[in-house]
């Protein structure tokens, strides 16, 4: 058993658990996008960032890949973490504004502006499809190619792969190449329609359920009640 501190509470983790798994076990919510229980952790989306350590030496790590350590001090919802998450959502939104998953995340974490140029690439390079193909479907038909800003996911030579069995696993798991929410259709690239609706379709923790006993004010869950 590993003992560590999470948001000021002493928690126990089993050998081999990651910070994310420990947090999940104790009911602490950490948002994820590129994490899937059936696939190996990848740490691409950086949504599951948490702060480890204390004071000036505190640093941000991705909780889905960071193993639980003895005596580790973790904070899942500090201002720094929330700001980093919002930035990641903003960046992903600019690449794939039609994704319902990312639009929902934007509303949930109060991302109400987008400062980046919309690129409509509909791929955030989270690697879910690549891992799905390799690990669950045993296909190895798609993978990453090139590097830097030219990085993309494709089949060899951009042709139909001989290994591909058209199982559709990659499309099933993709969080980016999907249709936008079929609810209220916003004109802008950033929808945020969930925020204007009452009751909101996103989850909201009241004073009793809030882990921080600080409902709405810390900025981790949706917003303050009207």
């Amino acid at each position: 058993m590993i003992t560590m501190k999470m948001n000021g509470v002493e928690v126990k983790a089993e050998e081999g658990w990651t910070i994310l798994e420990t947090a999940k076990f104790y009911g602490l919510e950490i948002p994820t996008l590129c994490h899937h229980e059936g696939l190996t952790p990848y740490g691409a989306c950086r949504l599951c960032l948490v702060e480890i350590g204390e004071g000036p030496r505190a640093k941000l790590v991705s909780s889905c890949t960071y193993p639980a350590e003895e005596g580790l001090v973790v904070h899942t919802d500090t201002k720094r973490v929330v700001q980093a998450r919002r930035m990641m959502i903003e960046l992903m939104l600019s690449v794939a504004p039609y994704s319902k998953t990312i639009q929902d995340l934007a509303s949930k974490f109060g991302v109400t502006r987008m400062r980046f140029k919309i690129r409509n690439e509909e791929c955030i390079l989270c690697g879910l499809c690549v891992r799905m193909c390799e690990e669950q479907m045993d296909g190895k038909a798609i993978g990453f190619q090139n590097r830097g800003y030219q990085r993309k996911i494709s089949t060899p030579f951009d042709l139909r792969s001989e290994e591909c069995r058209l199982c559709g696993g990659c499309i099933y798991i993709c969080p980016a190449c999907q249709l936008r929410c079929q609810g209220p259709q916003a004109e802008s690239a950033l929808c945020n329609a969930c925020l204007t609706m009452d009751p909101t379709c996103l989850d909201y923790y009241d004073e009793l359920q809030c882990w921080m006993y600080d409902a709405g004010r810390c900025g981790t869950c949706v917003r303050e009640k009207k």
Partner: peptide, 12 residues
């Protein structure tokens, strides 16, 4: 080695 892995290295 799966072809895609070779392509990944070759294009990197």
């Amino acid at each position: 080695i799966p072809l895609i892995d070779i392509i990944s290295v070759a294009t990197f």
